[in-house]
């Protein structure tokens, strides 16, 4: 399980990084999304993996070993929302840049021009 998730993080991060380095704004935005998946799962995995653990505490059962670590989960939950905000902001900047410069290159002008 851990190996699979680690490989998944690796693939997502590699695909995201590759897109981040591409010249077109749309590639970069997709790359940012993929990268944020990778990072979210990475942070989540820092709390170790536990399947079929109860999601809520029950009265009398207050041993932390019974539950999945909630701290990284709380971090990731806000990270998901913030990365959505980032994507939205980037998309708007992308569109504004396209409207102003007429190009969807990350530099705002076509290479060689």
């Amino acid at each position: 399980m851990a190996l699979i998730l680690a490989l998944a993080i690796g693939v997502l991060a590699a695909a995201g990084t590759w897109l981040l380095l591409r010249p077109r704004t749309f590639q970069v935005i997709i790359g940012l999304c993929l990268l944020s998946y990778a990072v979210n799962i990475f942070i989540f995995s820092m709390g170790r993996l536990k399947s079929a653990a109860p999601p809520v505490t029950a009265a009398g059962l207050e041993d932390p070993a019974l539950y999945a670590d909630p701290t990284p989960q709380a971090l990731v939950l806000t990270a998901i929302v913030i990365s959505f905000a980032l994507t939205a902001l980037f998309l708007v900047v992308l569109l504004a840049s396209r409207g102003v410069t007429g190009s969807d290159h990350v530099d705002g002008r076509e290479p060689g021009s």
Partner: peptide, 25 residues
């Protein structure tokens, strides 16, 4: 990109296969 992915995967795997730290949980 390959190095980034491989590095992140290695670190994640290395952490996940170690026993958990209780921390503030």
């Amino acid at each position: 990109a390959g190095v980034v992915g491989a590095g992140l995967a290695t670190v994640a795997y290395a952490v996940m296969t170690r026993p958990a730290v209780e921390g503030v949980t």
